[in-house]
Design a protein around this nucleic acid. Structure first.
Lengths: 248, 248
DNA sequence: TCAGTTATAGAACACTGTGCAATTGAAAGA
DNA sequence: TCTTTCAATTGCACAGTGTTCTATAACTGA
């Protein structure tokens, strides 16, 4: 009652007296760290608040809006890092390769955040302007215009970013550990009559086939498949390029 | 007390007396219908139970396990429909085209289920054997073996299914309506110095650029971009095919 | 001095997925 | 026929969740 600074039951101050200098940056930092560590599935606003030593509402106040908005902020953090302006004098093929390889690298460093990035890229793509700019310019330099430019752009973003999103999609929770056994059981169950080829081929050498496997809960690398896809697309775009006009 | 068949407070019977003949099939039916109607975000076990006129636990009993398992059942429903065995005498290029176009069609009929399918395809891909078998056989016929087969397979599944997953990713909840305005605002905010090309090009003709837009909360079609991507991949695979051996 | 703003906490609301225990008719075994 | 087991269902409760509304108190500017 006579205290100069009132305190709440658990001893924590309220109001501006309690200010800990929380910032959007720090929130996003810790959020990413938490997702990296425990996975997107286990991430919650309350847990984040706990880790920050702060009440949940404080986060809402700084981020403004909803959990989804926080996800947007997280995604923006990545998009910024993806591509610093690339030298325009390099061939457009090289520029495309660099951009998408660096996108994959950025995602691969924070695999648990991947699903979030995919969703945000779709719904909030305009925010990812570095990526958009780089790809559009490269395709323009390749001679693509109008609807052909649109389709080429979509094919690249959808195909490559889609690949990455799937590549780093999380294992279904607890099953990560028993994955190897699960895989073996599934393969053994394959109906040899209906799926003769899969039955014959899968068990032998397909231990790195896409979409099928984790190792000890960690992702195996599909880097070579990504490279292959990237090459395929860039070669295809070269072959179909309406005209070669390096200086538009 | 003296009732032959006891009743619970709200008048509903318990135990086998109350059996409504619930089946996994009906659960999955109604679940898909609900997701179609209200979106994946608004889907919950309790809501599903309400729609089925049944207690939530009853669903758990039939599906066994968790919500994630139910999602698995839902995904399986789609995978089954994707590709009935294709005539082996058609060229492998045609077969690939058919398979992936039919995959996109199946997903497009239930756009709200799309995110779920993407995740399940990754974590539970072995279940989707019709798709796997068709793609593997086609690539084998094209002459791909070993690690080249693996990379080609991964590139196709990752690129095309990834595209579809992104294509049908949901708009961020309530923002679907104000999307057009949001898009316009974002475009207007583009920094012309840092992103000159995007700034110049985007507002004009990019109203169907991937990743950027809905119309009245419904998805616009990216079909032509998907076709383009499909063509690019198949042409690329043809050009690189180790050898042409139609009859292995 | 005094209202307004900024940055914090607390409590509460309406949910969620899911586990445990009870209930019942029917089927199976003795 | 009597008893045990099983199949299919409900109710209740637990431990959360995102989010909103309200209180608090120091700073800020007039």
């Amino acid at each position: 009652m006579s205290d100069a600074t009132a305190q709440s039951k658990n001893g924590r101050l309220r109001g501006r007296a309690a200010s800990v200098g929380l910032t959007k940056e720090r929130i996003v930092d810790v959020a990413i760290a938490q997702i990296d560590e425990k996975g997107l599935h286990a991430f919650s606003m309350r847990e984040l608040a706990r880790a920050l030593g702060v009440s949940p509402n404080n986060i809402y106040w700084h981020v403004g809006g909803t959990k989804e908005d926080l996800f947007g902020e997280i995604a923006a953090r990545f998009t910024a890092a993806v591509s610093q302006s690339l030298p325009r004098d390099k061939p457009w093929q090289d520029r495309l390769r660099t951009v998408f390889l660096s996108y994959r690298d950025a995602v691969s460093d924070h695999a648990n955040v991947a699903p979030l990035l995919g969703a945000q890229l779709k719904s909030n793509g305009v925010a990812n302007l570095a990526l958009v700019e780089a790809v559009l310019t490269a395709l323009h330099d390749a001679g693509y215009r109008g609807s052909a430019l649109r389709d080429a752009f979509n094919a690249l973003i959808g195909g490559l970013c889609g690949f990455v999103t799937m590549e780093f999609a999380p294992a279904p929770d607890d099953k990560a550990n028993e994955w190897e056994a699960l895989f073996a059981r599934r393969v053994a169950e394959i109906d040899a009559d209906r799926f003769p080829f899969t039955h014959a081929v899968l068990p032998d050498f397909m231990n790195r086939i896409f979409v099928l496997r984790w190792e000890n809960g960690k992702h195996v690398s599909y880097a070579s498949s990504f490279d292959f896809l990237l090459d395929l697309l860039i070669e295809g775009l070269s072959a179909r390029a309406p005209r070669q006009s390096p200086n538009p």
